[in-house]
Design a protein around this nucleic acid. Structure first.
Length: 858
DNA sequence: CTTAAGCGCCAC
DNA sequence: AAACGTGGCGCTTAAG
């Protein structure tokens, strides 16, 4: 092999010399360099047995004919991309394809065998466009791993991929949602299901070899596959194949691993063969993994609400007409896979003027609070602390609670696991830390700060970049401790220090200063901490919501979050940015939800399920009291209150108290529960929500600031009328303990071995809480997913121009033409209230609103 | 420069 | 013996 053919090339042959071009423009000198070199590389590629390489138009045309010839069977695809940082960026309008690989079955011979590699770089950079018609043919089914990503990348090339057969990541999630998130990578799954995949491969081969009308082409493909590919079952990670230990200047080898850039692997002769092997293996594994997972999903039967002792255990279908996980996939999750990509691409329109406005406002508001607080901190310190960082937890811990001893921490299951594990190394060669031991806080601790005054230390000529700031602790008794044993400096703790400043009920720090005979200082401290709390709350809004919104909105003014199915309960999650945790209305001081708007001429429809999880609980437990309360309607928590307190029930019976009153009918003839018994109602509400989470008396006592006994009495009062819930929870816990799983409304499984294998109480308790929570939370997710599928498939909504934009756990957001809003709203409500063919034990209620922005619709 | 841990906080 | 379930993510700090 001729290396360094061009002199100038030496500079990019070294892995480290090339600065990351990821996310950059492809019209750069570096790219040109790759292009010029690549022409030669691609000509010199060694043909690998079993792999067909497409490197010109003629190859492409020939291969497309073959793909079309096998259009009756699904084809697995995978892509490799540049110009995108996959960790932090949406692939929408970002990222380009440099090659694609396919596998359509071991018998499908693309010329040199069943693995297909399509080049799409340099002189071939539009080769993929020849496949446009193929990809857009919805009759030809394609298999993907993490479909959303590839679909968007193709979208960037103007190819609207259709014919979605399945996503192996979603299949694996459905089959077993209880793994760590990183365990769903193609590499990890191929390892986890290695044995099953091998069997599927062999069976497939046997079946194909028996095929009566096998062509010569097919026979030779099968032979190539058998000789060269059949035994390759595991995908090695890119890091493993291409990672090298960095060479230090002194010639030693560092533990630091370095990796070539994607383009280097694609373009440099020393990588290209391995690169092609690596890329084509991806689609081949996706193909067999899909067959394997489909099989496993179909084999995983669902017998919900049936005990093994029931006579029809083996034969009875679930009430939803679902026999196995495979049915859930084909009925709901397959569509969901397609729906999520559409939500992502559609995105939400952002009112940039509003966001920029509130950004300025927030920054302005923060200034004064920050000044006030730091000014106060300065009064407690001898040295200069003008650079005190209010966002630093450590500095706050030091300021308030030092000196203090760290609390002895109990070993968490996580720590026990870490102790057992062998040393793990991080990608940069560092040993993965085994949870650092924290130390006691000294009275004075120093922190590194920017040397803004350009102070020059003794024995130094120039000012160093950093200098030190010393913080002397006030020595307040810590109120609570973090898991690592440090004093907690969260909202709760700081609030207790400050007290209620408005009401002049000063908090613990006031008493601290009073003890020292300085009450005025105490008041000042409370005021300062109060300002700090204000500052922190604004900071959170600014940094978690406002700034990311500005940074991540695309040039056309829409924001595209990426939506994942990656929770253990089957809920969705959202990233870049997370749009599912927008501040609740009460906390949204800058009305951030007003930033999410409908396009001009459009309206948003926001449709919420009312008390969805409680309804799922009522349905699954068949709890009479709860179902009854829901059927009667009105304020559910008020209804809960009256069943818990007999004297309140009496007042209702006598007509001295009302559950609800329509204000349009004038003044209420009697007081309402939510007014007269506001405190009780609040408790009932918390109970209603928290019991599903498995919260205990101790937890309630802490929240309500009462004795555990009293909390237990309230809980008992709740359960007294809801015996079915108690019984159901008992049953579910028993199944969890004995069989290590729990099931959602639709019968999806969540496996709990990991909680019960560890024999620590904390882990087991966690498992038991997860067991009773998952059916409810996951059941609610099942309902919303079913509703999304119904909405997506509804022709009337399509005709009205309404499209789904987002799901927020129990809420769906759609956008469409203003003139059709009322009509669409009716349909959406109807579909959401009837997500299944069957009716539940109680109706589902949906509250839907029309508005110009998300705020208006709430 | 990078990565990761720890903390804290947002939602349902 | 623990004490409320499911997530994403920004910031600080430490370390290679």
């Amino acid at each position: 092999m001729i290396k360094f053919r061009f002199c100038k090339f030496a500079q990019i042959n070294s892995i480290t010399s090339l600065k990351s071009r990821i996310g950059g423009s492809s019209k750069t000198p570096e790219y040109d360099l790759y292009r010029s070199y690549y022409n030669k590389t691609i000509e010199d590629i060694k043909e690998q047995p079993g792999v067909t390489i497409v490197k010109n138009i003629n190859d492409a045309k020939r291969v497309i004919d073959i793909l079309n010839k096998y259009k009756k069977q699904p084809h697995a695809w995978d892509t490799e991309t540049i110009d995108i940082d996959v960790k932090s960026e949406t692939p929408i309008n970002r990222g380009k394809l440099i090659c694609a690989s396919a596998f359509a079955g071991p018998e499908v011979n693309f010329g040199n065998g069943p693995r297909l590699f399509i080049d799409n770089f340099a002189q071939n950079s539009d080769l993929i466009m020849l496949f446009k018609e193929y990809f857009e043919d919805e009759k030809i089914l394609k298999i993907w791993h993490n479909y959303g990503f590839d679909k968007h990348i193709f979208g960037n090339h103007g190819i609207n991929v259709k014919g979605f057969f399945g996503d192996t990541m979603h299949m694996a999630r459905l089959l077993d949602p209880s793994k760590q998130p990183q365990e769903y990578s193609l590499a990890k799954l191929s390892l986890a299901y290695e044995d099953e995949i091998k069997l599927v491969k062999i069976k497939r081969m046997e079946c194909l070899l028996k095929k009566p009308n096998l062509t010569d082409e097919e026979r030779s493909s099968l032979q190539l596959f058998k000789d060269h590919l059949l035994d390759i079952n595991l995908k090695t990670s890119m890091k493993q194949i291409f990672g090298q230990n960095k060479e230090l200047k002194n010639g030693q080898v560092s533990k630091l691993k370095v990796y070539p850039k994607i383009l280097q692997m694609h373009c440099l002769p020393q990588y290209i063969n391995q690169w092609i092997e690596y890329s084509t293996l991806d689609s081949e594994i996706t193909y067999f993994l899909c067959l394997t997972l489909k099989d496993l999903l179909n084999k995983t039967k669902i017998f919900y609400n049936l005990k093994p002792t029931d006579p029809d255990f083996q034969t009875k279908k679930s009430e939803f007409g679902i026999n196995c996980l495979g049915d859930i996939y084909s009925k709901y999750w397959n569509s969901l896979g397609e729906i999520l990509t559409e939500l992502e691409r559609e995105g939400m329109q952002v009112d940039m003027d509003h966001v920029k406005n509130i950004k300025l406002q927030a920054e302005e508001d923060m200034k004064q609070y920050e000044q006030n607080f730091i000014k106060w901190v300065q009064t407690t310190q001898e040295g200069d602390v003008s650079q005190f960082n209010c966002s630093s937890t450590q500095q706050l811990q030091q300021l308030f609670f030092a000196p203090c001893k760290k609390q002895q921490t109990k070993k968490t299951p996580q720590m026990m696991k870490e102790e057992e594990e062998e040393d793990e190394y991080l990608s940069d060669g560092r040993k993965k830390s085994i949870r650092k031991e924290v130390e006691d806080l000294p009275e004075v601790k120093s922190f590194q700060i920017d040397n803004i005054h350009q102070i020059i230390k003794e024995n130094q000529r120039t000012p160093l970049k950093y200098t030190e700031m010393h913080i002397k602790g006030l020595g307040i008794e810590p109120l609570s401790y973090t898991p690592s044993g440090m004093p907690q400096a969260d909202y709760n703790a700081l609030k207790q220090l400050a007290g209620d400043v408005e009401k002049q009920q000063y908090g613990l720090i006031y008493h601290h200063f009073v003890g020292k005979g300085e009450p005025q200082k105490g008041i000042d401290a409370c005021l300062a901490i109060n300002d700090l709390l204000e500052l922190k709350s604004i900071e959170v809004l600014l940094h978690t919501f406002i700034i990311p919104l500005i940074e991540l909105t695309d040039p056309s003014g829409r924001i595209h979050t990426s939506i994942n199915i990656n929770t253990e309960t089957g809920r969705l999650s959202s990233r870049n940015p997370n749009l599912l945790n927008q501040p609740a209305l009460e906390k949204d001081r800058y009305k951030i939800r007003k930033s999410f708007i409908a396009k001009k001429g459009n309206k948003l429809i926001v449709a919420d399920y009312g008390q969805l999880e409680l309804r799922v609980l009522a349905h699954m437990t068949k709890c009479k009291a709860m179902i009854d309360a829901f059927l009667k309607g009105g304020d559910f928590h008020s209804r809960t209150v009256i069943t818990m307190f007999p004297h309140i029930q009496e007042e209702i019976d006598k007509g001295e108290l009302l559950i609800e009153w329509d204000k349009q009918k004038g003044k209420a003839p009697a007081p309402l529960v939510k007014d007269k018994y506001a405190a009780e109602r609040r408790k009932a509400k918390v109970l209603n929500f928290s019991i599903a989470y498995g919260k205990t008396a101790t937890g309630f006592a802490k929240d309500w600031q009462c004795e555990v006994k009293e909390a237990q009495k309230t809980i008992d009062a709740w359960f007294a009328q809801r015996k079915e819930v108690e019984q159901w929870q008992y049953n579910v816990r028993m199944i969890a303990k004995n069989q290590f799983f729990t099931q959602t409304l639709l019968g999806r499984y969540r496996y709990l071995e990991k909680y019960f294998q560890q024999q620590t109480r904390s882990y087991i308790n966690h498992g038991l809480r997860a067991a009773i929570n998952t059916p409810i939370q996951g059941g609610a997710a099942d309902i919303v997913i079913a509703a999304m599928v119904k909405i997506y498939k509804n022709q009337s909504l399509k005709d009205l121009g309404y499209k789904l934009l987002l799901q927020v756990h129990d809420e769906l957001i759609l956008e469409g033409p203003e003139e059709n809003a009322q009509q669409a709203l009716k349909i959406v409500k109807e579909l959401m209230e009837n997500p299944f063919e069957i009716q539940l034990e109680l109706p589902l209620e949906v509250d839907a609103k029309i508005g110009n922005n998300w705020y208006e619709c709430k």
